[in-house]
Design a protein around this nucleic acid. Structure first.
Lengths: 219, 219
DNA sequence: ACCTGAACACCGTTCAAGT
DNA sequence: ACCTGAACACCGTTCAAGT
C-alpha cells in the first residue's frame, strides 16, 4: 500500500484537478455537443476557472490542436499490410472520412489548419507509402496521389456535415429544369440504395479516383 | 444635369456613406489582407462606427455570406458549351479551385458553410448538368459526380493554402524512411515540373477522378 | 505546483438619441 | 433614413495573490 512519494518538505500532496489530457477530453465532448465552444463554458464543465487552464496549455489554439490530434489518431492504416492496394486505399479513405464525420462540429478545425501533426501520424504515412510501393508505384508519384485522396476525403467530410439544402434548386426550379431533374434523380437513387446524398457522392468520387489512379500507375 | 429626385418635404438629400455592397467589398479586402477580421477593424476602414453596419446588414454572418457569394460568383461554367466533356470538366474544376485560392484567407468560410448560394450559381449548375447530359451521362449519376468533384476541389484548395510543412517528416525522418524518400522525390518532381506540391496533387487527383468518371460513364 | 480573482483589451449586437 | 454613443454580455489572456 504505497502513497505518492512525498516531495521534500511538502505538506499534503494535493493531486491536481486539471491536466492537458483532461482539458482536451472535455473540449472534444463540448465540441461534439454542438453549440459554441469557449473557454468559459469549458471551465464551467470542469468546475474550474478559465485562468486555470494556463497552467497546462498555452491557449485556446493549443486545446484545439489537441482535439485535432485526438481525432486523427483514431485513423488506422493497418489495412495496407493485409489487403491488395486498391482495396486498402478504399478502406483507408473510408476510415479517414469516418473519423472526421464522427465529430461533425470539429471538422472546421481541420479546414483551417489541415490535418495531421503527431508522431503516430508519421507511422501511418509510412504504412500507406509502403502499400503504394508494394503495388509498384514510382516513388515520386506516391505523395501527390495520397494528398489528392486526402483532399477528396476532407472535402467529402465537409460536404457530409453541410446542411443538405445547399444544392437544392428551391423556388427557381423551373429556371434550371435539367439541374432540378438531376437532383430529384439523385435523391431517388440515394433513397433506393439506402445512402445519404453525401455518401453517394463520396462513393462515386472514391471509386473514380481509385480507378483513375490505378490506371495511371499501370500506364 | 439631373439631381436625385427630392423626397417629399426633405431638406438636403444626404447620400448615405454605407451600403451592403460597399460593406462586402471592404470586408473582402480586409480578409484578403490577412490578419484578423472584425467589425471594429472593418468600420475603421470605412471611417464609420460598427453600429452603423446594422442599418444595412443583419450581422457579421451576413457580411461573410456576401463575401462568399462574391467569390463563388466569379466561377464560370461556359466551357461546357464549348469543349468536349472531359476537357470542360478539367477547365471547370481548375477555375473553381482558382477562385478559392485567389482568396486564401477566405477559404475557411467555405469550409464551415460550404459553397454556393446565389441565383447566378443555379445557372452555373444548369450549364454543368447540361454538359454531363450531352456527354451521355444517366441523370441519376450526374449530381453525385459533380459533388465529388466539388469536394475534391474544396479539399485541394484548403491543401493549397495550408502551411507547406504539414507533410514533412521532420526530425523523425529515419523512423519513417520510405515516407521521407517519397516526400523528397515529390519535392524534386514538383520543382522539375515548376509546380507547387499542392498543384501537383491537384493535377494528379483531377486527372485520376476525371478518367475514373469517364470510365464509369461508358461502362 | 496549481488554482483563483481581478483586470485588460477586445468582441458582436442592441437601441435610444440625434440629424 | 441613416449614423452614432453608450451600454451589454461575452471573449481570451495575463498576472499578482493565495495555498
Amino acid at each position: 500500500m504505497t502513497r505518492p512519494t512525498a516531495r521534500r518538505g511538502a505538506g499534503r500532496p494535493r493531486t491536481p484537478v486539471l491536466s492537458r489530457d483532461r482539458i482536451v477530453d472535455a473540449a472534444l465532448e463540448l465540441i461534439d455537443d454542438g453549440g459554441t465552444f469557449s473557454l468559459g463554458l469549458l471551465a464551467e464543465r470542469l468546475a474550474v476557472k478559465p485562468s486555470s487552464f494556463y497552467n497546462h496549455i498555452s491557449g485556446k489554439d493549443d486545446i484545439l490542436a489537441g482535439v485535432q490530434e485526438r481525432i486523427t489518431d483514431a485513423i488506422d492504416a493497418g489495412m495496407f499490410e493485409r489487403l491488395p492496394w486498391a482495396d486498402a486505399v478504399v478502406e483507408w479513405a473510408r476510415a479517414y472520412r469516418a473519423a472526421f464525420v464522427a465529430h461533425p462540429h470539429a471538422i472546421a478545425l481541420f479546414a483551417t489548419a489541415p490535418v495531421m501533426g503527431a508522431g503516430r501520424t508519421l507511422r501511418m504515412y509510412e504504412q500507406v507509402v509502403t502499400g503504394f510501393r508494394a503495388a509498384g508505384w514510382p516513388l515520386e508519384a506516391i505523395i501527390p496521389a495520397i494528398v489528392a485522396i486526402e483532399s477528396f476525403v476532407l472535402g467529402s467530410a465537409l460536404d457530409a456535415v453541410a446542411p443538405a439544402t445547399i444544392l437544392e434548386p428551391g423556388p427557381d426550379a423551373e429556371a434550371v429544369p435539367l439541374f432540378a431533374a438531376a437532383v430529384s434523380a439523385r435523391d431517388l437513387r440515394a433513397a433506393a440504395e439506402n445512402m445519404t446524398a453525401a455518401d453517394l457522392a463520396f462513393a462515386t468520387g472514391l471509386r473514380a479516383m481509385i480507378d483513375g489512379l490505378a490506371a495511371s500507375a499501370s500506364r
